[in-house]
Computed example of a mutant assay.
Amino acid sequence: MSRYTGPKLKVMRALGVELPGLSRKSIENRNYPPGQHGQKSRRPSDYGIRLMEKQKLRFNYGLTERQIQLLVKEAKSAHGPTGDKLLELLERRLDNLVFRAGFAPTAVAARQLVRHRHVTLNGRLVNIPSIRVNPGDKISLTDKGARIPATIECLETPVLAHPEWIRFEAPTRSATVTRLPAPDEVPFPIEVQHVVEYYAVRL
């Protein structure tokens, strides 16, 4: 399954949650599912609840279904709770770090910054959004990347507050990973155990 490129607000309304990595728009004025019967009260099935939690992760981080599956498998083989490890792995993606550092308005835009070689990792140009960062790693914007209008706007008015696991340095337009991200630092509500249960019968 490929990455989603359709209407972003429609996805957030369907899931009932704002996903900062997907869009800067708000569902406050229409906080009900899209469609003719969107405002009618419907109780989702257990499967529907698990699917929606999984979709939150997929759409916020902009991943394909295959990528999510591989991360779940890795999380299951690691020490500690599978759900917590999964969230850590997602937050440690380079494109997510670029987004959480305030260099891009969404994770999608952050991925483009990396793909177009506007970001350096530990002083080296990189173009692979899925690179996994570690404590001590430092990212910076190139001079060209720092002149992009959307980037300038984000640096002036960040979409999200910088999480505690990132040290942001405005003068150098850089950010350093100070520690591993914690599960409760994901910037939207998520019941990750439902995601684990969703894949328990599929992997």
Rank of each mutant, 00 (worst) to 15 (best):
N127D: 12
L113T: 04
P135Y: 06
S140Y: 00
K144N: 14
V114M: 05
G136F: 11
I139N: 02
V114H: 04
A101Q: 03
L155I: 11
D95L: 05
L70V: 13
R167K: 08
K76M: 08
L121G: 09
G102Y: 05
N127R: 10
G62H: 03
E164Q: 15
A150V: 14
L97D: 02
F103C: 09
K144D: 12
A146S: 09
G62I: 01
Q67A: 13
Q67M: 13
A110R: 04
T120E: 11
E88F: 06
Q69H: 11
A104Q: 03
G80M: 06
P135I: 03
S77I: 03
H79L: 15
L71P: 00
I139Y: 01
L86Q: 06
D143S: 11
A109W: 00
N60I: 00
L89E: 09
R93D: 05
I131G: 03
I128F: 06
L125Y: 10
I131Y: 08
E74Q: 11
L141D: 01
R66V: 09
A109Q: 07
K144W: 09
A78M: 13
L87G: 00
H162C: 13
A161T: 08
N127S: 09
E156K: 13
L94T: 08
H116V: 10
E91H: 15
Q69F: 15
L86F: 09
E164A: 09
